[in-house]
Nucleic acid binder design. Structure first.
Lengths: 122, 122
DNA sequence: CTGGATCCTAACCGATACTG
DNA sequence: CAGTATCGGTTAGGATCCAG
């Protein structure tokens, strides 16, 4: 048995693809990174993940909650307070997603240079 | 100086976000994983990344080429032969993306269970 | 404060057919 | 074979307003 059997996520019918589609997403990455430091309320997530619209944040959080990556804590207060937190499962996702974020930051210069050179060739 | 300065990819104006948007993408992940074993021609990529349409594959490859992640090798033959290969930069991206693919496969059971439980609560 | 309700645009993406 | 061209459906995502 191969230590990693020809990666069946490359197979169209593999259910893991539905999960990959969710996690391989820029908003997911940023939200998970933002939550890695701990529980945050909706408002704080909005400011931490700069530029995210309330709608997109709500949608993203709901999808992450559905996939068991995030938990929603509602406090019966006025004004309402809702906090979001990574689950145990979500915490296992942090490293891979942060690696992606770090890659983007570390290589942005090369990427921008590549784009410029590519566009010049038009 | 912080070892990791409050992750400025969370800032809306950070250019790294444009790169993150590209790499945090399911097709990118699958194509990079497929190319990690070596140079592949268009046709072989199509069959390796099962279910990808020629249009999406073309678009994805063009974007990756533009970002300096993939190189395109054209052979002046009949019938034409075109091969794609990860650049040095692209190879540094393989580990993070494969980690994401592995995560999706390893945790798909938990994810599916979470979805079922979430949907039941409706 | 949370986030639902709308509306609307852009983008993604799938299918198919066709050319060099 | 390697695409491009086209079309159209679906979804992502931004803006705005409003309710509990």
């Amino acid at each position: 048995m191969p230590e990693h059997p020809t990666f069946d996520i490359l197979t169209a019918t593999c259910p893991s693809r539905t999960s990959l589609a969710r996690i391989a997403n820029k908003w997911t990455a940023m939200v998970v990174i933002a939550l890695s430091s701990g529980r945050l309320r909706f408002r704080d997530l909005r400011t931490t993940v700069d530029g995210i619209s309330p709608k997109v944040l709500t949608d993203t959080l709901r999808d992450l909650e559905r996939d068991g990556i995030v938990t929603r804590h509602v406090y019966a207060e006025v004004p309402p307070r809702v906090e979001y937190e990574l689950t145990a499962l979500g915490r296992t996702l942090h490293a891979p997603l942060q690696a992606l974020g770090i890659w983007a930051e570390e290589h942005i210069t090369e990427v921008l240079a590549a784009r410029e050179s590519y566009d010049a060739h038009t």
